[in-house]
Design a binder for these strands. Structure first.
Lengths: 313, 313
DNA sequence: CTCTCCTCAAGGCTGAGCCTGTGGCTGACC
DNA sequence: GGTCAGCCACAGGCTCAGCCTTGAGGAGAG
């Protein structure tokens, strides 16, 4: 049983509403025989008349009466199809699909999401917190549309923007003395270090860098305590259990509120972050807008709160 | 903004479900480039991509994700369109639209409707009780599909079956003596008559006939009482207020239950009934079936309970 | 490095869908 | 009662949408 065409439904509904084929044809901007023909084709494919043709006007048959509301619903769905497409493009609808590193909420996500939502209140926002490699994988195979990752990153199949944000790894301690000057690797090796697990995992750039520096200095860097989250490591440091290494912007609010001291490393370690998308660069309007806004928020953060020198809060 | 075609939606949904254009094309029994082209046309008309083409498989864009359920609903409506047409033709759905004279329920409609409903339980039944001229008008201008009317009738634009039912006008009284023999017009003129209003209206065949007979006999027929309904006239006759004229089948159950006596007229007056439809004879399957069943029920009534001679219940 | 699978582009064909023109019917109006 | 106006169906012709086949280009898998 073949499905009717959209045109057939349009003509059917118009004819039923207007009451004559001639009038309906005029409304649809076609010649009357064309509309008659389409109706005839439709009736033939259904095996049942839709109208009884009287000399002056059209009457819906019982079949026609039953089918009219269905045709109207079908056309309404068709219209909502194009309408929804328009809404997605104008950000009245849609979904942001974005991946970040776990600690992004500490300085980036709250502002970003709040501001985006204020601009586009009907757009759904799905932000997934993963590590950079996982974000890259998710973007690669389409589970996410875009993300922000720490460099360097395996960019097969991906489009990578230049670095959009730089953060400095800083040494944090309760003892202002220990934060009086930049900390080198040999000093670091003597301190009781609390490191967060994510930062110590195998594919973490910071771990690779610290290990390399330690080896070059003939040292071994053994953390006193390893925990899952950077915030947890900072909390322990604040209570004097040990010292910690943390990205400045991640730790800034805790450092300030708990009166911790911090110092850059020597030589300094700077983490660079960039946006990734699929290589073809296609993104939904919602995600594209989200990325643009993220860029602006990151620039604002970078200009207002740089970590250029060590100090105490 | 042009509406998508049904084919475009089918291909879109198939491609989204299967995950490749080639697979979807195979499922739709078309060549792969044809499907690719339709998707491209759809995307162009929307001004937005639906899929991101990766080397191995397809990914829905955000727009595609939003539109997929709408497309599926639209197609479901399309399918239910043809499905509903089928159901109307197989009497799984539909509406009977039928006009009868007012008193038909007294011997015809109850059985007819009960039996029809038992056979086709989902079909709606709209039976309108009017006088024959009104039924004819309603069929003429499409408010009803068919009806049963008393002959003769103005059959402009109508298709009239041969008489399908004959009923006899009988004289009804509480006095067996008065019903001992057929009643002629001069006798009738001496009796206290209770006539129902409908039967006395200007375009009623019975009124015309009685008036003609009376005039030919040099008499005037003046009813003692006129009421609206035949059943009311019969009730008054049963209480001895006067005598009445009634169609036999209309009055039969009341005559029998109230022990009334009845006699045919002399010469007898027989009312003939026939079915009418629009001249082109088009009826919904439901109404056509209803008419067929009405025919059978009327034949059953005629053969089991004829009014051939007068008598007392 | 080759093999395979997919997308995409080009060229050609068929028929769906549109047009104009015409004839027949019916109701309205003079 | 004759004419006119409005509606529908039918016929013939045209155009392009949608399909096909063929072939090229690209990316992952073995």
């Amino acid at each position: 049983m073949p499905l009717p065409t959209v045109r057939q439904l349009q003509y059917f509904v118009a004819a039923a509403r207007i009451g004559t084929f001639a009038g309906a044809a005029a409304e649809q901007h076609i010649a009357q025989p064309s509309l008659s023909e389409q109706i005839a084709v439709l009736e033939k494919s259904l095996g049942s008349a839709l109208f009884t043709r009287t000399s002056r006007r059209l009457l819906l048959t019982d079949t026609g009466k039953q089918l009219l509301p269905i045709a109207e619903r079908a056309l309404a769905e068709m219209r909502s199809f194009t309408e929804m497409s328009r809404r997605v493009q104008t950000l009245e609808e849609g979904t942001v699909s974005f991946g970040t590193f776990n600690s992004a909420h500490l300085y980036l996500l709250t502002d970003l999401i709040r501001e985006f939502h204020a601009l586009h209140p009907s757009v759904r926002i799905q932000v997934t917190g993963l590590n950079s490699a996982e974000v890259a994988d998710a973007v690669r195979d389409g589970r996410l549309e875009a993300g922000i990752v720490q460099l360097p990153i395996d960019d097969r199949e991906l489009l990578l923007t230049p670095s959009v944000f730089a953060d400095q790894v800083v040494y944090v301690t309760t003892d202002p003395e220990r934060a009086a000057a930049p900390v080198d690797i040999s000093t670091l090796a003597t301190r009781p270090l609390i490191l967060s697990e994510a930062r110590w995992s195998n594919d973490d750039p910071l771990r690779v860098l610290l290990t390399t520096r330690a080896q070059q200095a003939g040292l071994e860097l053994v953390p006193l305590i390893e925990v899952e989250f950077q915030t947890h490591a900072l909390e322990l440091a604040a209570q004097g259990v040990g010292d910690s290494l943390v990205s400045y912007h991640v730790g800034r609010s805790i450092i300030e509120s708990r009166g911790l001291s911090w110092a850059p490393l020597d030589p300094p370690i700077t983490e660079h972050y960039a946006f990734i998308t699929r290589r073809d660069g296609t993104m939904s309007p919602a995600t594209a807008q989200f990325v643009r806004l993220a860029h602006r928020v990151l620039q604002r953060i970078a200009t207002t709160t740089g970590a250029t020198t060590g100090g105490a809060a």
